[in-house]
Amino acid sequence: MRTKDELYREALRHVAGRRQRAVMEAQRARASAYSVHPELREAEEARTRAGLALTMAAARGADLDKASAALSQADAKLQAAYAAAGYAPADLEPRFVCPLCRDSGIRDGKPCSCVAAVARSLRRDEINAASPLALCGFETFCLDRYPTEPDPELGGSPREYMSKVLRYCRSYAENFNGSSRGLMFIGSAGLGKTHMALAIADTVLNRGFDVLYTSSAALAARLGREHFDRDAGDTWLDACKEADLLILDDLGTEYITQLTISVLYELINTRMLCHRPTIYTSNIVDQSIFEARYTEKVASRILGSCKVLKFFGEDQRLRRAQK
């Protein structure tokens, strides 16, 4: 899991690599064309000499008419040489992926938008590799799998209730900003909590925010290794602290130690102080059990910073397996 800076540097390397490949492919194409049509090379070199002559004439304050006429004549001969060889000038030029910055990564002295697009793609790959589901959208959150029979706790059907949860989460993602509240999804296994969290992540990521996903078990295991390896550095913790949105999935599945509680408190407290929202999912629906596991100090910070949404219904994975 990379920090924002690490991700940006990696994106710049990708863009630079694209530029290098484009330039090398153009050089190979040009060399091949010159070997078959040497008159192209001669016309190119003549055009270069005429351009330099015009520059020198301007620098000396000499009459530019003759040099300009020579350059125009060289241009015309070059165009004719291309046409005779069956090429357009663009055929032998580098074909850059981004026409705005020509794969330099910089446009008007600022990072080009293509760098941010590459960074989002890299982050998306990270999330897909770490999550049990690939990044998914709200359109694949299927309400038909939720029962239509009334639930006494809801006063209506789980399907009606979950349709409201879906609308709320879609609006949350579409209007996400630095002041958004965190979310806490609780409910039994297989009710779509991770799917909903990843759908939010997909929309928020596409809107240009940095999003990180980790399961609670993976985070605890990685941070434990980093704690005992002094040379590793806390890159995971740094990345989790600074992300615009953090998805912390499956609270309750990690191995709990005093170190886990300490690091979790540090992560949650830092994100709260910096007003960076977190989305948690957990199968623990009893608040007293939640507090006993994470301590009142950690639990109060999680629950106090979040809107809690309980998921109702039947395990969708079991329903699909039975069909």
Results as ranks from 00 to 15, higher is better:
Ala220Arg: 01
Leu237Phe: 15
Ser216Phe: 02
Asn175Pro: 03
Thr270Lys: 12
Tyr280Cys: 05
Ala299Met: 12
Leu245Thr: 02
Met272Ser: 11
Ser288Ala: 00
Ser216Val: 06
Pro277Ala: 14
Glu242His: 06
Asp234Gln: 06
Ile186Gln: 10
Ala292His: 08
Asp244Arg: 11
Ser300Met: 14
Ser288Arg: 02
Trp236Gly: 09
Tyr294Phe: 11
Asp231Gly: 01
Ala221Phe: 02
Ser262Ala: 01
Ala239Trp: 03
Ala189Tyr: 03
Asn206Cys: 04
Thr278Gln: 04
Gly178Trp: 01
Thr270Met: 10
Ile186Met: 06
Tyr265Arg: 09
Arg271Trp: 00
Arg225Leu: 13
Trp236Gln: 11
Thr214Met: 08
Ala292Glu: 13
Leu273Glu: 10
Leu198Tyr: 15
Lys241His: 13
Ala220Glu: 01
Ile268His: 10
Ser179Asp: 00
Ala218Phe: 01
Leu219Cys: 04
Ala201Gln: 15
Ile289Ala: 04
Ala232Leu: 02
Gly182Cys: 06
Ala199Met: 08
Glu242Thr: 12
Lys193Thr: 08
Thr235Gln: 05
Ile279Tyr: 04
Lys193Val: 06
Leu267Arg: 12
Thr203Trp: 09
Leu251Asp: 01
Thr281Phe: 02
Asp249Glu: 05
Ile302Met: 15
Leu219Asp: 02
Phe209His: 11
Ala243Gln: 09
Thr203Ala: 12
Leu267Ile: 14
Thr203Glu: 13
Thr203Met: 07
Gly190Ala: 07
Tyr280Trp: 11
Asp229Val: 07
Arg276Lys: 13
Gly190Asp: 06
Gly182Phe: 04
Phe209Asp: 12
Val285Glu: 15
Tyr294Gly: 08
Ala173His: 07
Gly178Asp: 04
Gly178Thr: 02
Thr194His: 05
Ala189Thr: 08
Leu251Ala: 01
Gly233Met: 00
Ala189Ile: 04
Tyr265Val: 11
Asn206Arg: 09
Ile186Leu: 07
